[in-house]
Design a protein around this nucleic acid. Structure first.
Lengths: 263, 263
DNA sequence: CGCGTTTTTGAAGCCCCTCAAGTGTAGTGG
DNA sequence: CCACTACACTTGAGGGGCTTCAAAAACGCG
C-alpha cells in the first residue's frame, strides 16, 4: 500500500511517476514514536519537517494558567509547515496522540526538492492552503457554534480527511483519541464533550467501541447536524458522501458587491 | 513615507534596494475602496492578490443561520494568501471595514516576482507563517480565554501589528472598527463586548474617542490582563514594549520529551 | 489482581446570551 | 436650523449552556 502522504497529495494534484518515486524514497526513513511524545516544543528552534505516516498527532499551545488548546489534528499524510525553518522559534508544540510512524525530512532536502520539482511544490502549496482553511473553519466552530455542532463538525471534518487517506474501513472511522483531546480542541470540558457524545450516540450518529475508540456511524446526518460544508477542504478528486452539497450561505451585512474591484 | 506593505516586510527581513524599488512599483497601481465592500466572496474563483495599503479589512465566513465570524483583521501592509489562485474557489470572503487603499496584483505577476527574487519570496513566506500563527493564537483565545482576556488579547495583538507599520501615533492606536466587528471576531455578542470595554475603560486601559474609534492607552497592562505573549508574531526587528517578556508556559500533560526525534 | 486513566453521573453556579428598550451621534434633506 | 433617519452604543432583566466541583463506575494495562 502506498503511504498516506502520497495518497493525500494525489487527492489534490496528479503527480508524475518520477515525483511519486522520489516522495516514496524521501519518506522511507521513517521512525516509530510512542504515544504522547512531543515532536517539537513551543520555543524550540525549528528543525526538520515531520510527516505523519501512521497514527495521530496534534498541534497545541499551553496557556500560562495551565490549559491546553489543540489547534490542529494531524492524521496520516499530514505534515508540519514547509518553511518553519526560517523562523527563529516554534510558536506551538506538536505531539503524538497515539503511537505513530513519522518521516523526518531535513528542511534543506525539502528545499532542494521543491526547487527542482514544481509538481511537488504545487501539491505542497495546496496542502498548506487547506491547512489554513481548516484553521479558519476551526475558528468559526469555536466562535459561532454550540457544543453539539462543534463536536459534529469536528467529526465530519475528520471523516472527510480520513476518507482521503484510506482511514475509513467498512464505513467506520476509528478515532484513537480521548474525550479530553476533543475537549481541548473544541474549547470545551471533557465532561461536556461526554454529554454531547451521549446525545449523538442516542441519535445513532456515533458509536462507542471497545478499546477507547469511537466510530462515526452516519456521516451524512452528522454533517447535517454540524452545518458542515466540505468545500473548504478543497479536494477535487471525487469523494464519497457527495450528497453533502455545498450550500451558499445567506448574504450578510457586508452586502455590497465588490466585483469591480478585481479588474 | 514608504508604503505599509514594504514597511511590514522590512520588519521580517532585510530587503535589497532593488527589491524595494520593485515592490514599490508593483504597489503603485492601488485603488480606493469604500468601507464595507467585499473584495472577494466565498465561493468566488480566486483572482488577483490584494495588498491593503491604507485602511482596515477582514476575512470572514458567514454561517447558514446568518451569523458572521471574522477570522482575521487585515491592517495596512497585510495581504491575502500568495497562492490562492491555485484553488478552485474561495473558502472565505474578504471585505473592507473602512475606506481603504488596496493594491491589486495579478497572481501571474506575483508568481514571476517570487521566481526571480528569492529575497522577496522569503519575506512573503515569513508573512504567511505569521498569518498562520495568528490564526492559531485566535483559536487559543476563542477556546480557552474568557471575554475580558479575549478582548485584551486582540487589542494587544493589534497594537503590536500596528506598531510594525507605523499606525501608532503619540502612543495611541485608533481602531476604526465597531464593537460589532470585535464581537464577530471573538465569538461574543456586541452587547457583551460593550460591557467588557467598559471594564477596560474603567481600569484606564482603553479610551473611547470621538468619532466612533477607541484607543489603547496602556498596552503593557492590557497585555498582562490578556496573558499576551508576542512571540508568535515572529518579529525580529526591535520593537517597543520589550518589557512584555516571553514567558515559557508551564509544562503540561504531554510532558515526555521528544528531543531525540529530530535527529 | 490492582492501579491509573478514562468515562460517566449529579448538583450548583456563573458567564455570557437573548430580548427589549433607550440614548447618543452622524448624516440628509427640507 | 431642525426634523428625520440610520447606525452604534448603552443599560437592564431573565435565562440557558457550559463549567466547576465531587465522586463513582468502567476500562485497560502491567
Amino acid at each position: 500500500m502506498v503511504n498516506a502522504f502520497i495518497r493525500k497529495l494525489q487527492g489534490y494534484c496528479s503527480l508524475d511517476p518520477p515525483d511519486l518515486a522520489l516522495l516514496e524514497r524521501v519518506c522511507s526513513g521513517a521512525r516509530v514514536v510512542s504515544a504522547h511524545t512531543d515532536l517539537i516544543r513551543e520555543g524550540d528552534k525549528p528543525g526538520p519537517v515531520f510527516i505523519v505516516l501512521e497514527g495521530w498527532a496534534c498541534r497545541y499551545k499551553l496557556l500560562p494558567e495551565g490549559g491546553r488548546q489543540i489547534t490542529a489534528f494531524l492524521l496520516p499524510g499530514d505534515t508540519c509547515d514547509l518553511h518553519v525553518s526560517i523562523l527563529q522559534h516554534m510558536d506551538h508544540s506538536i505531539a503524538t496522540l497515539t503511537k505513530a510512524n513519522v518521516a523526518v525530512i531535513p528542511s534543506l532536502l525539502l528545499e532542494q526538492l521543491t526547487e527542482t520539482h514544481p509538481g511537488i511544490t504545487r501539491a505542497l502549496w495546496w496542502t498548506q492552503l487547506v491547512d489554513e482553511a481548516v484553521l479558519r473553519a476551526w475558528i468559526v466552530s469555536l466562535g459561532r457554534r454550540d457544543a453539539v455542532q462543534r463536536v459534529a463538525h469536528l467529526l465530519s471534518e475528520l471523516w472527510q480527511r480520513a476518507l482521503a487517506v484510506g482511514l475509513v474501513v467498512d464505513d467506520i472511522l476509528r478515532l484513537p483519541i480521548t474525550q479530553m483531546d476533543i475537549a481541548d480542541a473544541l474549547g470545551l470540558t471533557n465532561i461536556h464533550v461526554n454529554r454531547v457524545l451521549q446525545d449523538l450516540r442516542h441519535d445513532q450518529l456515533v458509536r462507542l467501541d471497545k478499546g477507547r475508540a469511537f466510530s462515526v456511524l452516519d456521516p451524512t446526518a452528522l454533517a447535517l447536524r454540524a452545518g458542515f460544508q466540505p468545500d473548504y477542504l478543497h479536494r477535487f478528486k471525487p469523494r464519497r458522501n457527495e450528497e453533502l452539497a455545498p450550500c451558499r450561505p445567506a448574504t450578510g451585512r457586508l452586502g455590497r458587491s465588490g466585483a469591480d474591484i478585481s479588474r
